[in-house]
Design a binder for these strands. Structure first.
Length: 303
DNA sequence: ACTGTACCCTGTAGGC
DNA sequence: TGCCTACAGGGTACAG
């Protein structure tokens, strides 16, 4: 393996899955993809979570990427052909960007385990998709079918857009007995929130993850004070995380400026047994399981 | 319509 | 050192 400083000069390591992380990945990929043309696409296995599309490489090669956008936790590369390359990182999907070709064998990362797809661009840039658990996937969809596609058609509002309002939340939550945690994690309601940011938004808003979603609405479907308080906290936690370049829970790489920093600012996530950071609260963070996933919260100040 | 559970797959951390 | 279990940011398919 080459010394880290040499490797880092040509490598950018970009991480992972909820909305802020996907947005950071998108921003990192834009310079390497937008306006660039696929030269060669290497596919190292037939499937990720789903089978890769038939004629995957041929449908990409020679095509220009007009635009790379994000919708919820999805990345969408719009190609000149009218195809859209839809990508999801699952739990462990990562992209590595290299600005120019390197000599064969010159880098220990070459042919690294779980490198499943490599995009070679005509300008010499390389983008490698690595995903140990293979919960991520890539699909090719015709632009005209995007809106009706089952993976995209049912997605809820973008939380950073004006579509997320207390009124919207109340309307969707009215009469629902599901826990507030499960409700906010549902991609059909809000697109892009995951386990970390749901926990953190509820903590900031002082709302218990175990209460019913219906408590966001009055009997007539108007937003309650809680719904009104929750919306800006959802936005704030996502924006704070994006500013911090996302959350990295593991040290896959050396610190090189591309690792997220928001994990250092969690109020509750992964902090079981620790003190609630809220001034004057004095509670202890607890971990419970909801819908098969960990929820972290402060039972003292989240009601 | 709503739960809750199992499952997809690999890696890691911690107990013994 | 190893072996075992629990757990991990995602989503879906069931059964009840």
């Amino acid at each position: 393996m080459l010394p880290a400083p040499i490797r880092q000069r040509h490598d950018e390591c970009l991480l992972m899955p909820e909305l802020p992380e996907v947005e950071i990945v998108r921003r990192g990929l834009v310079p390497a993809l937008e306006g660039k043309v696929f030269d060669r696409v290497d596919q190292h296995r037939p499937d990720l979570r789903f089978p890769l599309p038939t004629r995957f490489a041929p449908r990409l090669e020679g095509q220009k990427v007009e635009r790379l956008e994000r919708r919820g936790k999805y990345l969408l590369a719009h190609l000149a052909s009218g195809d859209v390359l839809l990508m999801h990182l699952g739990m462990t999907g990562r992209f590595r960007v290299r600005k120019r070709a390197k000599q064969a064998g010159a880098n220990a990362a070459e042919g690294a385990k779980h490198d499943h797809v490599v995009f070679h661009m005509q300008d010499g840039g390389h983008i490698t998709y690595n995903d140990p658990r293979r919960f991520g996937f890539m699909l090719l969809i015709d632009r005209s079918e995007l809106a009706q596609h089952p993976l995209l058609g049912n997605l809820g509002v973008e939380p950073l857009s004006e579509a997320l309002t207390p009124e919207y939340l109340a309307a969707r939550a009215r009469g629902k007995k599901v826990s507030l945690k499960s409700f906010l994690s549902d991609q059909r309601i809000i697109a892009g929130l995951g386990n970390i940011y749901v926990c953190e938004a509820l903590y900031r808003a002082g709302l218990s993850p175990t209460r019913a979603a219906s408590t966001l609405a009055t009997a007539t479907g108007e937003p309650t004070e809680d719904a009104t308080a929750l919306v800006p906290e959802i936005r704030a936690v996502l924006q704070d995380a994006i500013r911090a370049k996302g959350s990295s829970l593991r040290d896959y790489r050396q610190a090189n400026g591309e690792r997220g920093g928001f994990q250092n600012r969690f109020g509750v996530y992964n902090r079981t047994g620790k003190r609630c950071p809220r001034q004057g609260c004095g509670g202890k963070i607890e971990r419970i399981v909801q819908a098969g996933r960990s929820t972290f919260y402060c039972p003292r100040c989240q009601n």
